[in-house]
Design a protein around this nucleic acid. Structure first.
Length: 431
RNA sequence: GUGGUGGUAGCUCAACCGGCUAGAGCGCUGGAUUGUGGCUCCAGAGGUUGCGGGUUCAAAUCCCGCCCAUCACACCA
């Protein structure tokens, strides 16, 4: 039996690796989502909102050798005994939706939302984290890979990020990839003695993964490893060349990194990452993606190619902080109502203003005039509307400009207040 | 998952080698001739020193366990 912990002394807090995003920060999150959405729609992508959990099977098709799938999934049995999992990424769900709904090709979708992986948390690595991404199904044109890469590049740039590099690679088609993997495995086995213990194990399971190792001990072996680009079949080499040409056509700077192997095993041909130089930590990949040929088929659909990327929103914000860009603040209300005759006037006046489309707030609990003015100031409102006994008797409200100390306070008849405010606010905007 | 570092008010931090009632700044609340914010000044509230146990006359400080954060690795966005 589980022991019930004494509630005393144990403060309830959010679970490990997840966090609250408070109002001071949410403005930026909202703007990010809106900007990303606009960027995608502009390029003909439609939004996909898929469920946050799927049958476990959907994610197992990503390849059970990947740790994301084998070790990090939040899986559970539902009340009917079905094995479910919170989505650890979106591509599998998108592919599942694609198969389920048979849309017209090419199917261009974008998404935004939380993903879940039970990893050990760190800065830029959370158990619930947000990704924004796109996927396109049904086209194998290499220029589509370029469009996808360019869209992410353009979007990251639009946030104001400058210290970015784009790394690209090609693993080739399945034949090239398998051939290379085999050769690399042979090479690593030869020099196994020089590798770290962990990498020796990795080499057995998935040789490509060793290229990702950051251990100093492995670097010499990795540097001497054969390049995957030398193993591309003719058509795969042509695909990659077209991608590079396309990037040059668009004047998008890129580095070819033959060591770039991505974590999910479904990628074939193009793989890429957007890396931030502004982040010192190991979590400096702001996003990544690539082309995948086998995923839809693995999920039981026809062999349909796909390409896409995912951006790590939490990490992008860390990079933004580091570069001091894309800083968004909560927008303040326009009007603050100060009522020192009991609060009833504020109640009806705020309602009236809001119905008229004017944003406003007020104080509570009959605080003193001074206190209410202080709150009004703090609220960031442009104007305060003051109702005291004098104003109430005269059926007016006092309008005070909080931004400038010079404009004299002015009494406005109660029934003209909405028009008067719309006037003032319009003037504010035109100034 | 493995290893390292850390956790003191809402926030940022102080408290030498264990020793007085655990402090400061910011923020918050109230006040400075009784109906006017910002600047200034005065005052106040706010802490089981992450949680639990141990050592000691005495623990924020030393030891152990747990929790959380953070860094590296592993992995990934």
């Amino acid at each position: 039996m589980n022991q019930i912990r004494s509630p005393k002394g144990v403060q309830i807090r959010s679970p490990r690796g997840v966090r609250d995003i408070l109002p001071a920060e949410t403005a930026r999150w909202r703007r990010f989502e809106e900007d990303f959405s606009a960027c995608c729609k502009q390029a003909g992508y439609g939004e996909l909102r898929s469920p946050m959990f799927e049958e476990l099977e959907v994610f197992l098709r990503l390849g059970e050798e990947t740790e994301v799938v084998s070790k990090e999934m939040y899986d559970f049995l539902d009340k009917d005994g079905r094995h479910m999992a919170l989505r650890p990424e979106m591509t599998a769900s998108a592919a599942r939706a694609f198969i389920q709904h048979s849309p017209v090709l090419p199917w261009k979708i974008y998404y935004y939302g939380p993903q879940f992986r039970s990893e050990r948390p760190q800065a830029g690595r959370y158990r619930q984290f947000s990704q924004a991404g796109i996927e396109v199904f049904g086209v194998s044109d290499p220029y589509l890979d370029v469009e996808v890469i360019a869209l992410g590049w353009q979007f990251l740039g639009s946030l104001g990020l400058k210290q970015l590099t784009l790394q690209v690679n090609s693993l080739g088609d399945t034949a090239s990839r398998n051939n290379y993997s085999e050769q690399l495995g042979r090479y690593l086995a030869q020099r196994a003695g020089e590798l770290s213990e962990a990498s020796q194990e990795t080499a057995q399971v998935n040789p490509l993964r060793v290229l990702d190792s950051k251990r100093d001990q492995d670097q010499a072996v990795i540097a001497g490893a054969p390049s995957c680009l030398d193993f591309l079949e003719v058509s795969a080499a042509a695909h990659f060349e077209a991608v590079c040409n396309g990037l040059e056509k668009l004047r998008i700077p890129y580095q070819v990194n033959p060591r770039l192997v991505r974590g999910l095993d479904y990628y074939t041909h193009t793989a890429f990452e957007y890396v931030s130089q502004a982040l010192k930590s190991a979590q400096n990949a702001l996003g990544g993606g690539g082309h995948y040929d086998g995923l839809v088929e693995a999920l039981g659909g026809k062999p349909v190619p796909g390409v896409g990327f995912a951006l790590g929103v939490d990490r992008i914000f860390l990079a933004c902080d580091s570069e001091q860009v894309f800083i968004s603040e909560q927008s303040p209300v326009e009007i603050f109502v100060v009522d020192i005759v009991g609060g009833g006037e504020a109640l009806s006046l705020t309602q009236q203003l809001r119905e008229a489309g004017i944003s406003c707030d007020r104080a509570w609990e009959s605080r003193s005039l001074k206190a209410q003015m202080k709150i009004a100031d703090r609220s960031g409102a442009k104007f305060a509307l003051i109702i005291g006994s004098n104003e109430q008797a005269a059926n007016v409200v006092a309008l005070k400009d909080l931004r400038s100390g010079e404009v004299p306070q002015e009494d406005i008849p109660r029934d003209e207040i909405v028009l008067a405010l719309k006037d003032r606010l319009a003037m504010e905007i035109s100034n």
